[in-house]
Design a protein around this nucleic acid. Structure first.
Lengths: 408, 408
DNA sequence: TTCGTTTGGTGTCCCAGAGAACATAACACC
DNA sequence: GGTGTTATGTTCTCTGGGACACCAAACGAA
């Protein structure tokens, strides 16, 4: 039911203003449905702590705007009247953009973290910020008709491998892309015509794993990704992403792990990402490069003692970084992605043992190492989460003002 | 004005139940007044974003319960009707307890972080958990008459140098005290008759510095304290204390800073607190021990090159730990307390330069090293914050149910 | 079939915050 | 030293929104 029109002299503010309490509750329900993909009304009632009747009203309001829809209850073997199931609308979606050294990937992601479409645009050389924005805008332009007809886009999220200030979406420094002080979010927003935000790739990955992946249901998580160009980290503490003063927090790739280690491109020495790198492994294997699964195959196939030694050397340094992380964050889950996941898969108990013996007893007992669960969709889901953020903070306000209110 | 009695059939729940929104706003105002000590009604209106009239009602409610009081405006040179000033009631207080290896300190702290009383009970030997609890309970018993007559005690907070689970106030491991799995909060609660909570000392210190000290007005802060028994850390990110899964987060004293370093009592090697310790300094100075100011004097007085070299050695390791912290948390402030503060005071620019050259450019530019601002009251204020926690979360509910509602 | 159980739906009640209008107390300017 | 301006406290009314009670509906169990 729509809210009745106000009789009193209309205030200057647009009519989108909603009571904070109501907005909160609508946001809460939308987020829950987004995170769980399906949730019965009864479950929503329990999780929100709100009254049955209130939850009913809220869902009615969301359903009227086409943000969620209800389906007949699946007769679970339970006593009592069955509760209808609430799902996120498949028409709400966000765009995800991920620039890398050899490609720009663009994705279309639904609420619930469902990747509808993923387009990888390979580039001849490392794309500049301008080029990456142009590629993304062009791909989005190509989808425009489809987007306009079948979707309501809440925004674009850009995952950047580097230091990003998420407040204004400016890339302060992305060493491997060679970007410096690029206002990527503003550029892409102007080029594509959607609201746009940017953040560090590993931070977004951590959030994605928290919501839909190996960290689901947890509140404290450390995510580490080993890629071709270095090691990125994202930390979730108390259910919230660690941002820091300017959003630069989480750079675990530059954890100190070795006295008089090699010089890192960051200027310091002994950084995790200079000592632990897939480049060293490929070099030892005599391969010129490849992706993660090729690396794992090659490592498993190799009988070379030099390779084995290098693996155990890298595991040692990784354990030091993880020891620090465990003592510092007391996480429930440590997620290793990319080639770090490969290293772990090769000798899981070796790393577990190192960690258990080096970290403080209390925190060490609780920290479980896991490989990433979301695979190749991870970064799309994480970036899309950025594109959903403003929508999820105020679903109805966003739809009635920020988007065309096309009925389903 | 008291809330009018409900006419409808009284529900089973006690009449203390309050609308969540109202409770939130009351808590918000109480916390603001607590943090700022004095705040005009106009300032409260701006900070809360609530309506003038609403703020008036809320303050009226708090004043009626004797939680805050208003005083005549101090005619600040400002146009317009002056706004009365709101201050926390001096009758609301929390107890603070801090067991150390050679003493148990008990404090009485008002809202606003005013330490009314501090009693240091020196012990012959390291107190057991039972002994520390008995000492605290005895001292509190001694104050009982005064407490009952002049104060309303919201609770006891215990700061423990070690791993503490703040959920149940159990000390998992306090190596220097030799405590293991001691339910300190429960023990003291039973012995003293007040609600009691316990947490890590450095975490509480970090909170105290955030609210009243060098981190006031900031949201991201790293606190490091160098004491006789090691180095403790507390981290505040996004305005919230880092807790981790069981509240063990923040153990920066066991950050890895040196390959093939000495073995730490925690089992690992190369920990910050084994390489950087005031014991080494006292040893080199040929002094058997002393407090922080004595150390500073002795270090400044000494012309020995060995001492100078040790100082620079320790600064180097400290810089490595701080580098990690800056890259990981992107804090605005790093607070160095205890002998770490002394080390910094001896060569501030040396540490600043090391940090600037080693940490990532973005985060490094923002992180400012500061000495602690709260001095010897720091731990009392921090522990008291724990004792205030439940009160601040629901001020009126707490007073009408949890405390005798003695009118002022 | 009947009963107990769980849930959705509807109507009522009332708290709590917003806002307008008025009152009040300072400064500023002539 | 009046008068205007500005900022704030005070009072009153209005309304949104959640809780609750009651009833209806839909399921399992006996």
């Amino acid at each position: 039911m729509m809210s009745s029109p106000r009789q009193r002299a209309a205030p200057a503010a647009p009519p989108s203003e909603l009571d904070p309490s109501r907005r909160n509750n609508l946001a809460l329900i939308t987020s829950l449905v987004h995170h769980h993909r399906v949730l019965s009304r009864a479950q929503l009632t329990k999780r929100t702590g709100l009254n049955r009747s209130t939850v009913g009203t809220l869902i009615g309001q969301l359903a009227a705007l086409g943000l969620v829809y209800e389906t007949a209850p699946t007769g679970g073997a339970q006593v009592g009247r069955p509760s209808p199931e609430v799902r996120p609308s498949p028409s709400i979606a966000a765009l995800a953009v991920y620039p890398e050294i050899d490609a720009v990937t663009i994705g279309l992601v639904n609420l619930g973290g469902i990747v509808q479409k993923k387009i990888r645009f390979a580039t001849e050389r490392i794309p500049s910020a301008r080029e990456a924005v142009n590629i993304a805008a062009a791909v989005i332009e190509g989808m425009r008709t489809e987007l306009d007809h079948s979707y309501r886009i809440t925004g674009i999220g850009v995952a950047v491998p580097g230091l990003v200030n998420p407040d204004d979406g400016t890339v302060r420094h992305a060493p491997h892309l060679g970007w410096r002080d690029e206002p990527v979010a503003r550029m892409l927003s102007e080029a594509a015509g959607y609201a746009c935000q940017a953040a560090n790739d590993a931070s977004l990955a951590a959030e994605a794993e928290l919501i839909f992946g190996a960290g689901a249901g947890r509140d404290n998580l450390v995510y580490l990704n080993g890629g071709a160009s270095g090691i990125g980290g994202g930390i979730i503490s108390n259910g919230m992403l660690l941002r820091g003063a300017s959003g630069y927090a989480g750079e675990l790739g530059h954890t100190f792990v070795r006295t008089s280690g090699e010089q890192c491109h960051c200027g310091a020495t002994g950084c995790l990402e200079t000592e632990v790198s897939q480049g060293r492994l490929f070099e030892l294997l005599g391969v010129s490069g490849g992706d993660t699964s090729q690396l794992e195959q090659a490592l498993r196939a190799s009988g070379s003692p030099a390779v084995a030694e290098e693996i155990s050397r890298q595991l040692g340094f990784l354990a030091i970084a993880l020891r620090n992380a465990v003592n510092t964050f007391n996480p429930e889950v440590i997620i290793l992605d990319g080639f770090l996941g490969v290293l772990y898969a090769l000798a899981p108990s070796a790393l577990d043992d190192l960690l258990l013996s080096q970290a403080l007893d209390g925190p060490a007992a609780q920290a479980k190492v896991h490989p990433a669960a979301l695979g190749s969709n991870l970064m799309m889901i994480g970036a899309a989460e950025l594109g959903f953020a403003r929508f999820l903070a105020d679903p109805t306000g966003f739809v009635t003002t920020g988007l065309g209110s096309a009925a389903e």
